[in-house]
Each structure stands twice: as structure tokens, then as C-alpha cells.
């Protein structure tokens, strides 16, 4: 849930469901009007189910203000007005304040100042089966969506390093399977093959490869044990998960350093 969505839900709770916590599963029976809040990457959607609307709805965007108007009739079966506006936190709070005064009036009007200009050509009010009024105001994707994927500048939590290390070490280990099979084959073939394997393993290249493989194995095993524990719901609290992530990261490095010290 986005922060904006959380704020919206909190305010809606005050207006629509006095004394009752709003939830994604919908409001309590009998609350008026029923309502909910949803969000997409580029909009927040406020849904209010109200008794009866005229099959006519208008939406205009002028001078930075979104105007929405829908006429409502009492006495008809339960109908829905669905408003979908893209709004900042304060926009949303204002519009929900307005909703407070409107829930029992025959007309549903909304003027909402948007902090970002929507695409004027994409504001539309539509009625479906004379029951659902939907007003959309789209804000171009790029203006709301968080696009910040410079991995060098994203602050990675310790568990993220464990995770990417698990993946990298897994790929390294998978890549080392064919050479390992070849070494096993060669070493079991005849004494000359065995000697050749031995010579390869004690060569500088063999030692360097061994250190990389040992780090990969140590990290992969430690991080993998962490996964298995997590499957059993052991150490799932944030503090415990961070501790075990440190153990995996540091443990893998220590094993690699000790191996390097022993080999070189």
C-alpha cells in the first residue's frame, strides 16, 4: 500500500465509517455510503457507493482544477458513483472533506485541485449500465511513478546483499559443475589423470578458482540455511533476519579468507 493510499484510507475512514476501521474487504454492513480506496501506480481511486445517480456525468479540467459533477436521485436502487482522481495527500483530504457534506445531497459535485496536471485529453466521465459512473483523470505515468534504479545509489539493506550474493554464488557454483565433472572423470581414469588433476588444483589458477568456489559454496550454504529456517518460520523477525544476513555475508567471506590463507 502506498503512503498516499494509506492516508486516503485513514481520511475515508473518518468520513465514511465513523468508529469502524476501513479495510480492503469493504466496509461494515449498514455503513453509509459504502466506500473503499484503491490505487494504481499513477492514480488513487476513491469509490463511494451511493443510492442512485442520473445517467449524466461531467468531468472537466480547467486552470488546474478538476471539476466533476453527477446528479443523483433518491428512491432508486443502490447505485454507485465511482470517482477516480489522481491527487496528492492534501488534494485527497480536501476532496474527502467535500464528500462529507455531499453524501446526503442530490448532487455530487467535486472540484479538486491537482498537484500535477493530468492529461486533459484523457479526462472522461462514463456511465455503464446507468448504474456506475466512472470519472478518470490520468496523470502521465512518468510524473508519479518512482523511477530510480541506479543500483549503485540505492541503499541496499544487509539482506539484499545476502540475497544477491546467494544468486551470484549459485550461478558460479552451477558454472563450476561441468569442470568439476571433468576433474572427477580425469582423476578416476588412470594415475596420469590423477596427477594432472592434482597439478591443476595446486596451480595458481586452480587455487584462485578454488577460493572463488569456496566462497560461493560457503555463502550459498549459509544463505540457503537461512532460507530453510525462514521456511520453518524461524528467525523471521526483522532483527533476527538482519542478524542471520550478517552471519551469512561475513561467514562466507571469513571462510573464503581462511581458505585463501591456507592455499597461498
Amino acid at each position: 500500500m502506498t503512503p498516499l493510499n494509506r492516508v486516503a484510507r485513514k481520511h475515508l475512514e473518518d468520513v465514511l465509517l465513523p468508529g469502524v476501521g476501513a479495510s480492503i474487504r469493504g466496509p461494515t454492513c449498514g455503513a453509509f455510503p459504502a466506500g473503499n480506496v484503491g490505487s494504481t501506480p499513477n492514480s488513487v481511486q476513491v469509490v463511494a457507493f451511493m443510492p442512485g445517480i442520473d445517467p449524466k456525468a461531467e468531468a472537466k479540467f480547467r486552470d488546474g482544477v478538476l471539476h466533476v459533477s453527477v446528479a443523483r436521485r433518491f428512491g432508486s436502487p443502490s447505485r454507485a458513483i465511482r470517482r477516480r482522481v489522481t491527487a496528492s495527500e492534501s488534494d485527497l483530504r480536501d476532496s474527502i472533506e467535500l464528500l462529507r457534506g455531499e453524501v446526503r445531497s442530490p448532487h455530487f459535485r467535486r472540484s479538486c485541485v491537482l498537484s500535477q496536471d493530468p492529461d486533459s485529453s484523457k479526462i472522461e466521465a462514463t456511465l455503464r449500465r446507468h448504474t456506475h459512473c466512472r470519472v478518470f483523470a490520468f496523470v502521465p505515468m512518468s510524473s508519479r511513478r518512482l523511477v530510480f534504479l541506479n543500483v549503485l545509489r540505492i541503499g541496499m539493506p544487509v539482506g539484499a546483499w545476502t540475497s544477491i550474493g546467494h544468486r551470484i554464488s549459485g550461478v558460479v557454483l552451477a558454472a563450476s559443475v561441468p569442470p568439476a565433472a571433468w576433474l572427477l572423470d580425469l582423476s578416476l581414469r588412470d594415475p596420469a589423470g590423477f596427477a594432472r588433476v592434482h597439478a591443476l588444483l595446486v596451480s595458481p589458477f586452480g587455487k584462485a578458482a578454488a577460493i572463488v568456489v569456496v566462497w560461493s559454496l560457503a555463502h550459498h550454504v549459509l544463505a540457503g540455511l537461512r532460507h530453510l529456517a525462514s521456511d520453518l518460520q524461524i528467525g523471521s523477525s526483522l532483527a533476527a533476519a538482519r542478524r542471520s544476513a550478517w552471519v551469512a555475508n561475513v561467514g562466507g567471506a571469513v571462510v573464503a579468507i581462511v581458505t585463501a590463507g591456507a592455499l597461498l
Partner: peptide, 10 residues
């Protein structure tokens, strides 16, 4: 220790 022992293990 050597090839013979390694092979006998397998």
C-alpha cells in the same frame, strides 16, 4: 594419498 586409494574409494 594417491590414485590407487582414490579409485578404491569409488
Amino acid at each position: 594419498a594417491g590414485y590407487a586409494e582414490w579409485r578404491s574409494r569409488f
